[in-house]
Design a protein around this nucleic acid. Structure first.
Length: 486
DNA sequence: TTTTGAGTTGTTCGA
DNA sequence: GTCGAACAACTCAAA
């Protein structure tokens, strides 16, 4: 009589470097891979639209990989604790393994399930599959969680390199459970894809969800983008960023794999990236770690200001301005290009995220949570750690945040980091014929230039919705009032 | 316990 | 056009 091992897949939709899967295989009993779409447990945040689209394709990819190895994926929907209780009854597993999550409500669900299983005599164990450094292992000398990135990163990396990734298993002990017998659903039944309307065309063109697509994206980056990464990553018109974020979000590739593959590419000369390029790429992984560190150690980083003095701050309520920002109709080309890139492709270049974030919070003085919500719904890489932590950073409400007087000037940022306007032209086609000199501030162009470019301001493309200087002054004087407040 | 040094990503102003 | 200073203290982390 066999006692199968359930591997509960969550944000780790891959076969390589998957500690829970490795542990299950080591038991030498049939392995039953399971996925549960849980949008009902206490405190669980429903997934955004773009992430649901990605999840559908990523699950499909994982399901095909597993089926090819003779271990079909079983898919369920509902509160994870109930689903797991029912599986324990039906499948009589000897063990249930998973890789950890780090947000409090998810931890509570996982702990309750662990207790349930152990009470039934079923082994339950969790592993480190998502992060380079488990959050509780990085502490100040006083034993407290770190709140500033640089000391955090120094302390995290001081003991040495993160653990090396494990290879994908050659084979997995098969199971003979039919989806029907287990009460499992087809992936289609999860209804993750958009229907009316189907807005996913731009995403299909841009992305290949799944472990294979993730590995390919990493290889392309290591061959091309890593050399010169330190500088190139600032220019949204260049293909210099890794674009690994959604793959990391779903764990189609692990941070350990990225960290080590980059090191190997440099050592072996596959990439002629400098030490500093490599260090910068790795420190971006470090920022992801830091966000998870904050997620783990603080209460609700998606809703609560890390700096409590912002709790009394009066954010502007302006649905019309919020909508103009969301739709890329602010009249500032670099902002609009970013918001439209997001809408079309489900992703936005990192520097442009800072520019549009600063614009929402400082120029419009709209609550950072509105921006976080919008990104949550539209980004394919939206996760529970990086998205809120980065919004709090740009808003100045974070523990280790940009100072209030740092207000990005959308014209200067455009001129500096998109000097030829290639990025703006790609996503704001109505400005495609504007000369570079005026493309980031079309309202300053002489009438003849506008006419030549076929742009009639207020008709083809909006006037700036706010004046930069006035908005900056307002932000500085308003935020200044918070000085010294607790 | 106290002191010291430092903190992702910027902008503006005046010399 | 270029360059350095001011913008504001405050908190964190380590010595």
């Amino acid at each position: 009589m066999s006692s199968p091992s359930i591997v509960w897949f969550r944000d780790d939709l891959r076969l390589a470097d998957h500690p829970a899967l490795i542990a299950a295989i080591a038991r030498k009993e049939p392995v039953i891979p399971v996925f549960i779409l849980d949008e009902e447990s206490d405190g669980i945040r429903p997934l955004g639209g773009a992430v649901r689209w990605w999840l559908h394709h990523s699950l499909t990819s994982l399901s095909e990989q597993l089926a090819a190895k003779g271990v079909p994926l079983l898919v369920f929907r509902g509160p994870a604790r109930d689903v797991m209780a029912s599986l324990a009854k039906k499948l009589k597993p000897g063990a249930v393994f998973w890789n950890r999550r780090y947000r409090k409500p998810e931890i509570a669900v996982d702990s309750a399930i662990k207790d349930d299983l152990k009470a039934k005599g079923i082994a339950a164990e969790s592993f480190s599959g998502t992060l380079l450094f488990e959050p509780w292992t990085v502490k100040s000398q006083a034993g407290t969680p770190m709140r500033v990135f640089t000391p955090f990163y120094r302390a995290a990396t001081a003991p040495g390199e993160p653990a090396p990734p494990a290879p994908a298993p050659r084979s997995i002990p098969g199971h003979d459970v039919t989806p029907k017998a287990a009460g499992a659903l087809s992936i289609d039944k999860l209804a993750l894809l958009p229907t009316k309307p189907d807005w996913s065309g731009g995403m299909r063109a841009e992305w290949t969800p799944g472990e294979k697509g993730a590995r390919k994206r990493l290889d392309v980056f290591l061959k091309g983008g890593l050399a010169g990464y330190k500088e190139g990553r600032n220019f949204p018109g260049r293909p210099s960023t890794s674009k690994l974020s959604p793959h990391l979000r779903f764990g189609e590739i692990s941070a350990r794999q990225c960290w080590h593959a980059a090191g190997i590419a440099v050592e072996t000369g596959q990439s002629d990236a400098s030490d500093s390029d490599l260090a910068h790429f790795r420190s971006e992984l470090g920022w992801r770690e830091f966000s998870y560190h904050l997620l783990f150690n603080l209460d609700d980083i998606a809703r609560e200001n890390m700096q409590k003095r912002f709790d009394a701050f009066q954010w502007a309520k302006n649905a019309q301005q919020l909508r103009a920002w969301q739709r890329g109709q602010t009249g500032y080309p670099i902002v609009d290009a970013g918001m439209r890139e997001l809408w079309q492709t489900g992703w936005m270049h990192n520097r442009v995220r800072m520019i549009v974030g600063s614009f929402l919070v400082k120029h419009l003085m709209i609550d950072w949570r509105e921006g976080e919500d919008w990104f949550w719904d539209t980004l394919v890489d939206a996760d529970m750690a990086s998205n809120p932590a980065s919004w709090q950073w740009v808003a100045g409400t974070g523990a280790d945040a940009a100072p209030y007087f740092r207000v990005f000037n959308p014209v200067l940022q455009g001129e500096k980091f998109d000097p030829d306007g290639a990025y703006v032209k790609r996503f704001v086609p109505e400005l495609a014929s504007m000369p570079p000199k005026y493309i980031h501030s079309p309202w300053t162009a002489p009438a003849s230039v506008l006419k030549e470019a076929g742009v009639s301001l207020g008709f083809d493309y909006p006037h700036p919705m706010v004046d930069h200087q006035a908005a900056r002054d307002r932000a500085l004087s308003t935020f200044e009032a918070l000085k010294g407040a607790v």
